[in-house]
Protein backbone atom coordinates (compact mmCIF):
# COMPACT_ATOMS: atom_id res chain seq x y z
CA UNK A 1 0.00 0.00 0.00
CA UNK A 2 1.21 3.50 -0.78
CA UNK A 3 0.72 6.32 1.72
CA UNK A 4 1.28 9.90 0.58
CA UNK A 5 2.47 12.68 2.85
CA UNK A 6 2.86 16.41 2.30
CA UNK A 7 5.11 18.47 4.56
CA UNK A 8 4.83 22.26 4.40
CA UNK A 9 6.37 25.16 6.30
CA UNK A 10 4.14 26.33 9.15
CA UNK A 11 2.26 29.59 8.80
CA UNK A 12 4.44 32.43 10.01
CA UNK A 13 7.70 30.60 9.32
CA UNK A 14 9.83 32.40 6.75
CA UNK A 15 10.06 30.39 3.53
CA UNK A 16 12.81 32.07 1.47
CA UNK A 17 12.51 29.52 -1.34
CA UNK A 18 8.76 30.03 -1.65
CA UNK A 19 9.34 33.79 -1.67
CA UNK A 20 11.91 33.50 -4.47
CA UNK A 21 9.54 31.33 -6.51
CA UNK A 22 6.71 33.82 -5.99
CA UNK A 23 8.90 36.72 -7.13
CA UNK A 24 10.02 34.79 -10.19
CA UNK A 25 6.41 33.91 -11.08
CA UNK A 26 5.48 37.59 -10.70
CA UNK A 27 8.37 38.57 -12.99
CA UNK A 28 7.07 36.02 -15.54
CA UNK A 29 3.80 37.96 -15.61
CA UNK A 30 1.87 35.65 -13.27
CA UNK A 31 0.98 38.84 -11.43
CA UNK A 32 -1.93 37.23 -9.55
CA UNK A 33 0.47 35.13 -7.42
CA UNK A 34 0.61 36.71 -3.97
CA UNK A 35 2.33 33.90 -2.04
CA UNK A 36 4.08 30.57 -2.64
CA UNK A 37 4.94 28.10 0.11
CA UNK A 38 7.29 25.28 -0.88
CA UNK A 39 7.01 21.91 0.82
CA UNK A 40 7.94 18.24 0.39
CA UNK A 41 5.95 15.29 -0.91
CA UNK A 42 6.62 11.68 0.15
CA UNK A 43 5.28 8.41 -1.24
CA UNK A 44 5.73 5.66 1.31
CA UNK A 45 5.30 2.07 0.24
CA UNK A 46 4.36 -0.07 3.24
CA UNK A 47 3.83 -3.81 3.69
CA UNK A 48 0.98 -3.21 6.12
CA UNK A 49 -2.38 -4.27 4.75
CA UNK A 50 -4.68 -2.27 7.00
CA UNK A 51 -4.95 1.38 5.88
CA UNK A 52 -5.79 2.71 9.32
CA UNK A 53 -2.74 1.03 10.83
CA UNK A 54 -0.53 2.13 7.97
CA UNK A 55 -1.57 5.76 8.34
CA UNK A 56 -1.05 5.62 12.08
CA UNK A 57 2.43 4.30 11.44
CA UNK A 58 3.15 7.05 8.90
CA UNK A 59 1.94 9.64 11.40
CA UNK A 60 4.60 8.35 13.80
CA UNK A 61 7.18 8.65 11.00
CA UNK A 62 6.13 12.24 10.39
CA UNK A 63 6.57 13.16 14.03
CA UNK A 64 9.91 11.38 14.39
CA UNK A 65 11.61 12.11 11.07
CA UNK A 66 9.70 13.37 8.05
CA UNK A 67 8.71 16.74 9.52
CA UNK A 68 10.35 19.08 11.99
CA UNK A 69 7.32 20.19 13.97
CA UNK A 70 9.02 23.41 15.08
CA UNK A 71 8.82 24.73 11.54
CA UNK A 72 6.71 22.29 9.50
CA UNK A 73 3.20 20.83 9.35
CA UNK A 74 2.41 17.47 7.81
CA UNK A 75 -0.67 16.13 6.11
CA UNK A 76 -1.28 12.44 5.34
CA UNK A 77 -3.33 12.24 2.16
Amino acid sequence: MKIKVIVTPKNGVLDPQGKAIQQTLNSMNFIDVSEVRQGKYFEIETDLKDEKNAKKNVEDMCKKLLANLVIEDYKIL
Binding site: V13, L14, P16, Q17, A20, N68, V70, I71
Partner: peptide, 15 residues
Protein backbone atom coordinates in the same frame (compact mmCIF):
# COMPACT_ATOMS: atom_id res chain seq x y z
CA UNK B 1 17.26 17.68 15.14
CA UNK B 2 17.97 15.54 18.22
CA UNK B 3 16.02 18.04 20.32
CA UNK B 4 19.01 18.72 22.60
CA UNK B 5 18.71 22.45 21.88
CA UNK B 6 15.61 24.47 21.00
CA UNK B 7 14.61 25.95 17.65
CA UNK B 8 15.24 25.29 13.98
CA UNK B 9 17.70 26.42 11.32
CA UNK B 10 16.03 27.57 8.12
CA UNK B 11 17.49 28.33 4.72
CA UNK B 12 19.47 31.62 4.76
CA UNK B 13 17.17 34.59 4.21
CA UNK B 14 18.68 35.57 0.85
CA UNK B 15 19.13 31.94 -0.31
Amino acid sequence: ETGLVTGALLRNKYL
